[in-house]
């Protein structure tokens, strides 16, 4: 459960979510990760440390490089994030359902 808390906390940052999205494509080095984010490598490394601490990524040592990849199960976390967005949109549309019911008095009762 602690790990889940850490994962959600790690996912609360848009840069870290974008890093995870990039890693979903495959193993990547810090240098390759820093490029699209217009960030310094130390800044990216700090984000990676948080992601690693949350169990979302794993890193190995290869010479002077420390390539990182998604940890098994990390995609489940991303799914949770998308599920949250789905619920969020659903809240708007639930309100719209109510409005539409009010707009069309003849259709206030569920036809099904």
């Amino acid at each position: 459960m602690n790990n889940l808390d850490a994962a959600f906390s790690a996912l609360a940052d848009p840069t870290r979510r974008a890093i995870l999205a990039r890693l979903a494509l495959g193993e990547t080095t810090v240098m390759e990760l820093a490029e699209p984010f217009a960030m310094s490598q130390p800044a990216v490394s700090r984000h990676l440390k948080v992601l690693e601490g949350a169990g979302l990524i794993t890193r190995r040592i290869e010479g002077t490089k420390r390539p990182c990849r998604l940890a098994p199960g990390a995609l489940e976390e991303i799914d949770k994030w998308l599920a949250m967005l789905r619920r969020a949109l659903e809240a708007n549309y639930d309100r719209l359902d109510q409005l539409l019911a009010d707009m069309e008095p003849g259709k206030e009762t569920d036809p099904k």
């Binding site: 998308l82 969020a88 708007n92």
Partner: peptide
């Protein structure tokens, strides 16, 4: 591009497109 898409999905949540179902 895909980076923009990820950022947009993240931002949607960031700005709390979540709402309370109980209230709805």
């Amino acid at each position: 591009d895909s980076a923009t898409r990820e950022a947009m999905l993240a931002t949607g949540m960031e700005y709390g497109m979540e709402a309370s179902y109980a209230r709805l």
